[in-house]
Design a protein around this nucleic acid. Structure first.
Length: 122
RNA sequence: GGAGUCGGCCCGAUAAUCGCUGGAAAAUGUUCGCAUUUUCUGGAGGAAAGUCCGGGCUCCAUAGGGCAGGGUGCCAGGUAACGCCUGGGCGGCGCGAGUCGACGGAAAGUGCCACAGAAAAUAUACCGCCAGCUUGCUGGUAAGGGUGAAAUGGUGCGGUAAGAGCGCACCGCGCUGCUGGCAACAGCAGUGGCAGGGUAAACCCCACUCGGAGCAAGACCAAAUAGGGGAACAUUGGUGCGGCCCGCAUUGUUCCCGGGUAGGUCGCUUGAGGUGUGUGGCGACACACAUCCCAGAUGAAUGAUUAUCCACGACAGAACCCGGCUUACAGGCCGACUCCUUCC
RNA sequence: GCGCCCGUAGCUCAGUUGGAUAGAGUGUUGCCCUCCGAAGGCAAAGGUCACAGGUUCGACUCCUGUCGGGCGCG
């Protein structure tokens, strides 16, 4: 069963916080999603979602992608601690099934840990 | 049994675990703003959509006057209001249950009607028909032919030189009266020889109606800052205010240069609310009583996993709130009614 | 949340207000020209005027409703 919570302080809420991530980002991704990441000064990982209507047109599909990203983030938040992450959705993300999205996210989290934690920590 | 019409309802179900979020209670911490934890409880739709109409609410004047402009358009009712709904009338479709209709005015005026055709609305006569005589002209006529989407009521009989509402009958149309109906309208009787094409989703006329902006409205709190410099104009001005004028309120105004901030709270869900019963009404709906509280987020909550069952799950996600319309849509359930066939 | 504009040939656009022929450039194809190619000349094909319904004798044009695309305010 899943553990871990997803409280308000684990989210990016201010426009300024988003701007910081966009300004000094460590970027990974594939054809479905783009992940932007930078280190914060806190113990927890924080998540922000930017799923544009331009890429995923219907609100139902947008909400579905956001929910699955949040759930997957919640499962992996211990490994991601100390990072601010912004997830950008692309057109193909709205067409994936639940299982496909989870497996895609699994790979992306691991790539993120390798790339960003090593490169930006020293 | 089959085919169909109308109305209403549902939108996977159940259980467990982990999460998100509103409310309530308790505990702990506290810089007294709040934070964390635990328990209980609530948590997307019939279209939440398109934004095509109407209203509430907020600010501008309590939303005022005139012009311009827009909308609606058979009658009556319902409603907060409507372009919606109900009932009725008329017309179209259907055997029928039913269903559809921008359904005022063309004798108020203006415009337009290609080509063809004699002539497209001022009037008129191409082929014809008839009469007369100078034998290719004059007069009469509009029945027939021809053109066109559309040609000055239709059919029949009489009548005539040939014809013609010229006369008559029926149908259509107009006018008058009576009856029924609140009315739209219908029916009946009389009367007129026929008013004189279409187009108002062309301008327009008539009747009714419409002030503007929108919750990023608007109100408040805290923090920061600037209260800066320069130039021009002068109350017949500027702003609110939006096409114009009047009017009202407020105020010196405008432009250029450089710089900074944009955090939070309220508005925010008790409402033209839902459910049940009764009464009035053909109905839309209204009234009375009882009862219930049923999303309120703010980078934005409804999800994930497992198990079982089936019809194997369509279209699709609230963002201030309601009433409609329109559009998208896999299916399922219930009720009323119509037609056809067969049997008793 | 509110407002505005545009969908016409493969591409870029006229025509729409004022109703009666769907047109231009470019591209494509064929022929000519040239030793060959480019340029040039001639000709042809290519259109459900975004979709659906309505008004009208007649709709790219007028009206209504959809669908798609773009822009602006804040």
């Amino acid at each position: 069963m899943f553990t871990g919570r997803f409280a308000r302080h684990q989210r990016l809420t201010r426009p300024s916080e988003f701007k910081q991530v966009f300004a000094r980002a460590c970027k990974t991704g594939n054809q479905h999603l783009t992940l932007l990441c930078r280190q914060n000064d806190q113990d927890v990982a924080r998540l922000g979602l930017a799923i544009a209507k331009r890429y995923i047109s219907t609100a139902v599909a947008r909400n579905r992608v956001k929910r699955i990203v949040r759930t997957s983030f919640r499962q992996h938040q211990a490994e991601l601690s100390g990072l601010d992450i912004v997830v950008l959705g692309k057109t193909s993300a709205g067409q994936l099934s639940k299982q496909e999205l989870f497996s895609v996210l699994e790979k992306l989290w691991q790539g993120l840990i390798k790339k960003c934690k090593d490169s930006s920590s020293p």
